[in-house]
Amino acid sequence: MKHQVNSAPKLEEGDKIILNHIQGGFPITSRPFKEIGEKLGMSETEVIERIKNLCLSGALSRFGPVLNPRRMGGNSTLAAMSVSPDRLEQVIALVNSYPEVSHNYERQHRFNLWFVVSAESEAEIKRVLAEIEAKSSFAVMNLPMMEEYFVGVNFQFEVE
């Protein structure tokens, strides 16, 4: 019950009930959707159909694993750049072209581009940051995590 959300557009009650229950802990059993359905009072077919629709409508970014590169011998970092407006779209295309970039946001600040780089080795991360810097000719500020105090993205949708 980490993040209380009051209303959400375009979601039916059944969708919200499902969303609140599948943001982690997806059953690792032979019939996982049946198990979820039994808990929520829905049929296995309804659970599958609703999740399909949530994926198709764009309500879900993904339905799968959230990976931890640090446990796979790799690492990830947050990087920021201060890019002039006339070059911004070009640099965005460059940054987004890297499969190692998992998230990228434009933000309202002197540092206007913020992205996450993950790879299976520290050397790969360094290479990606150096390449982006060289190809764009803008400096990349590297902000690796030094200590984690909390991570727990879990949006709860209020059911009427």
Partner: peptide
């Protein structure tokens, strides 16, 4: 811990957040 969690990742933008 190679997989942190398994399940849905909501697109908070699409959901109005």
């Amino acid at each position: 811990g190679k997989i942190k969690r398994l399940g849905a990742v909501p697109n908070h933008y699409a959901l109005g957040i």
